[in-house]
Design a binder for these strands. Structure first.
Lengths: 364, 364
DNA sequence: TGTTGGCACTCTCTTGTTCCGAGTGCTAAT
DNA sequence: ATTAGCACTCGGAACAAGAGAGTGCCAACA
C-alpha cells in the first residue's frame, strides 16, 4: 500500500493546511504553497486518488479535501516532521517546572494546567500508584483526647491526621499501638490488611477504646486514596476556541465527558506503555464521546511504582506535531525530576527554593 | 417608589415565566397563568408602566417583556417566595454531605462540585483562613538521612513532610530542634516568623547543617499555603446548558474568567459578611466579565478563623429562588459540621452530628 | 376611573428563491 | 505524464415574502 512520494507530500500539505485554517483545502491552495512544482490540475488528480485510497474525503462534491482519520494517522506516523520546541519555549517551560515541585500529588494539578496552557487545548493529568505500602507508623500523643497518626508510605510521601477522641487515652496505650502497627502493618499492601489482622492487633494492644479500628481505618483509607488514580482536568474552556466546537451542544457533550475525568482511563492501556507519546485519532478512541476528537497522550514514570499520564484533547484537526513535541518535553522533564532515582527530590533542592521564598517575600 | 400590589404580582409572573422559558413573556402568557383575574389588555397597560418604571424592558417593539436587573432585584428582595427544598432533595444532600467530610481543604473541591450538581450551574467554592499558627511541632527521626516534620496547626489540621538530607544527622540534633521550634514558633503568625528569629534558632540549636532553615521554610510555606485562599471551580460546562450562552464566544469569555478562579474575590467583601445568601445581579457585579451574569453567594464559618464561600454563577435569568435555597441549605449543613465548636469534627463526633441532622429538620 | 375588546401596526423568524464563487471532473492538447 | 480549459455542482450569502406573536391605542363599558 505504498503511495508515491508526491502523494505523500500532497497529503502532508492538505493536513497541515487544514490544521491551520480549519477549512477544506483545494488544489489551488496547495499549488500556491510552492512545495510542489506542478499545476493545480495535477494536484487535483492526485487528490482524487487520495480520496479513493481513503486518506482524504470531501464534505461535498465541490468542496476542498479534508483528511480522514486514516489520513491523519498516515501523517502522524510517517509524514509529520517532529517539531522541536523553540529555545524560548524550552526555557520558559523549564522555569515553570522548577518552580513547583514538591510531591507529585500536589503537582499533578499544576501539570495538567501547564499542559493545557502550553497547548491551548484541554488537558488531563492523572497518576496511578500501582502498589503502596506503609513504611513506617508514628503516633504522636497530643493530649488525653487527641493524637496524631503519621504514616510514611513506600513512595516516601507522608500522610497525617489528627484524631480526636471523646474519651481519654493514656500515653502508654498510644505507644503500644504504634509499636504493634509498626510490627504488623508495615510493608503490607492494603488487600493484606484484613479484619482478622486488625482484630488480632486490637486484642494484642488491649485496646478497649476502638483506637485500633480508627487507626486501621485511616491506613486503609489512605492507601486506598493513594492507589486510586486521580485525574485533573484543566482548560476545558479552551475547547471553545476550536471552530469544530462552536456548536454548544457538541462542546457540552465532550466537556461533560471530560469533566467526568477518570473515564479517559479506557485509554490508559497506555499507562503501562513506553514513554513514547501516543496519538489516538478520532475513531481510534474507545470512548464513544471521543470518536471524533483526538487525544495525544504522554506517559512517564514518576518514581516508586507510580505511573503518570498527561493527555491533551482536541479536534481531529489538531496540531499533532506541536502538541506531541510539547507533551513529550513535559513528560521528559517531569520524569527526570520525579522518577528515576530513589531519593525524593527534596533536601538540598529545598534550600534553593527556600532562599527564593525568603528573599522574594512574594509568594505565588 | 411603592408599586401597586397587582404590579408586583405581574412583575413576579414575568420574572418567573422568563426564568422558566428564557423567552420574552407577553401579556397573554401572564393572563393564562390565572393568578390575575383580568384581561391581557389590562396586563398590557400594567406592563407598559412597569417598563417605564424600569423594572422591565422589551427587546424590541413587538416582543414580550424581559426583566431588567432592577426587576430581578425587586423580585429577589421582595417578591420571591423562598423556596424550600423538597424532602427527597434534603435527604439526598445530607447523605452526600455526610459521605465526605474530613478536613475542609479536602472537602472544598467536593463542595463546589456538589453545589454545581445541585444547581446545574457552575459553582465556585473558596476558603480563606484569616489567621493560622502552628500549635505544635514534631520531628520524627527516621534514619540518618531522613526525618519527618509534623505540624499541627491552630485549625487542627496536620501537615507533614519527609525531609531527605544529603548528610547525616544525629537523633539528638533533631530532638533539640523540635524542642526549640516548639518553644519559639508555636502560636506565631507567619509574619512574625522573621529571618532574625530563624537565625537565632539556628544558633541556639548549634545547627551547622541548615536544618533550621529547611524546617522554618516548611513552616512558612505551609502557613502561607493554608492562608492563601484556595478556589475550586466545578461544572463550568453547565454554562452551556443555558441558552444565553449558546454563543460560544460569550461562554468562552465567562468560562475563562471563572477558571481564573480567585478573581471572584472582588466579591469576597461578602466573606466577612453574615451567613445570609447574597445575590448579585448583572451590573451589580464588580467584575466586568460578570456584568451580565448573576452570582449567588453563600458564605459561612468553617471553624477556626476560616471563612468559606460558595458561589454559583449563571445568567441573570437564573432560578434565584431555588439556587438560594440550595446554597443556603448547603452552607448551613457545612457550617454545622465544620464550624462552631472548638473540637474538630472528626472521629466519633461525626456520627453524632449526623444523627442530629438526620432526625431534626432543616433550619432555613 | 379602571377595565375590556378590538384592530391596526411593528418586528422577528421562517421559508423559499436566487445568485455567486470556489472547487471539482473531464477532455483535449502538449 | 502533465497541463489548460470548461462545464458542472454545491453550499452559503443575500434577499423577499409570509406568518405569528405581541404591542399601543381607542372606544366602549361597569
Amino acid at each position: 500500500m505504498a503511495i508515491s512520494e508526491r502523494k505523500k507530500k500532497i497529503l502532508a500539505a492538505v493536513v497541515e493546511e487544514y490544521i491551520r485554517t480549519a477549512e477544506p483545502v483545494g488544489s489551488k491552495a496547495i499549488a500556491r504553497r510552492g512545495e510542489l512544482s506542478c499545476s493545480p490540475a495535477t494536484i487535483r488528480n492526485e487528490l482524487a486518488e487520495l480520496v479513493s485510497l481513503g486518506y482524504l474525503e470531501q464534505p461535498h462534491t465541490s468542496a476542498g479535501r479534508v483528511p480522514t482519520p486514516m489520513g491523519y494517522r498516515m501523517y502522524v506516523n510517517e509524514l509529520m516532521e517532529k517539531q522541536k520546541m523553540s529555545l524560548e519555549e524550552t526555557e520558559e517551560l523549564n522555569r515553570r517546572l522548577n518552580q513547583k515541585l514538591q510531591q507529585l500529588d500536589d503537582t499533578i494539578r499544576d501539570v495538567s494546567r501547564l499542559a493545557s496552557q502550553l497547548t491551548d487545548y484541554p488537558a488531563l493529568a492523572l497518576t496511578t500508584q500501582i502498589a503502596v505500602t506503609v513504611k513506617r507508623f508514628d503516633l504522636i500523643y497530643v493530649d488525653a483526647n487527641n493524637f496524631i497518626i503519621v504514616l510514611m508510605l513506600s513512595n516516601n510521601s507522608v500522610k497525617s491526621k489528627l484524631v480526636h477522641l471523646p474519651v481519654s487515652v493514656d500515653q502508654e496505650l498510644v505507644k503500644r499501638l504504634a509499636a504493634l502497627f509498626n510490627a504488623g502493618f508495615t510493608g503490607m499492601e492494603d488487600e493484606k490488611i484484613t479484619p482478622a489482622l486488625i482484630h488480632a492487633t486490637e486484642r494484642a494492644a488491649d485496646d478497649s477504646l476502638g483506637l485500633t479500628a480508627v487507626i486501621s481505618a485511616f491506613v486503609l483509607e489512605t492507601l486506598g486514596e493513594v492507589k486510586t488514580p486521580t485525574a485533573f482536568l484543566s482548560g476545558e474552556n479552551r475547547l471553545l476556541n476550536q471552530p469544530e466546537f462552536r456548536d454548544p451542544d457538541k462542546a457540552h457533550r465532550l466537556m461533560s465527558y471530560l469533566s467526568g475525568g477518570g473515564r479517559i482511563l479506557p485509554a490508559s492501556e497506555a499507562l503501562g506503555g513506553s514513554d513514547e507519546v501516543k496519538v489516538l485519532i478520532g475513531p481510534e478512541n474507545v470512548a464513544e464521546e471521543l470518536k471524533d476528537s483526538s487525544v495525544v497522550i504522554a506517559s512517564f514514570d514518576a518514581g516508586d511504582h507510580t505511573r503518570c499520564l498527561i493527555g491533551v484533547v482536541g479536534p481531529t484537526r489538531m496540531d499533532y506535531s506541536a502538541v506531541a513535541a510539547k507533551l513529550s518535553f513535559l513528560a521528559a522533564g517531569l520524569s527526570r525530576r520525579l522518577g528515576g532515582g530513589e531519593a525524593p527530590p527534596e533536601g538540598m533542592h529545598n534550600k534553593l527554593i527556600i532562599k527564593e521564598i525568603d528573599d522574594g517575600h512574594e509568594r505565588r
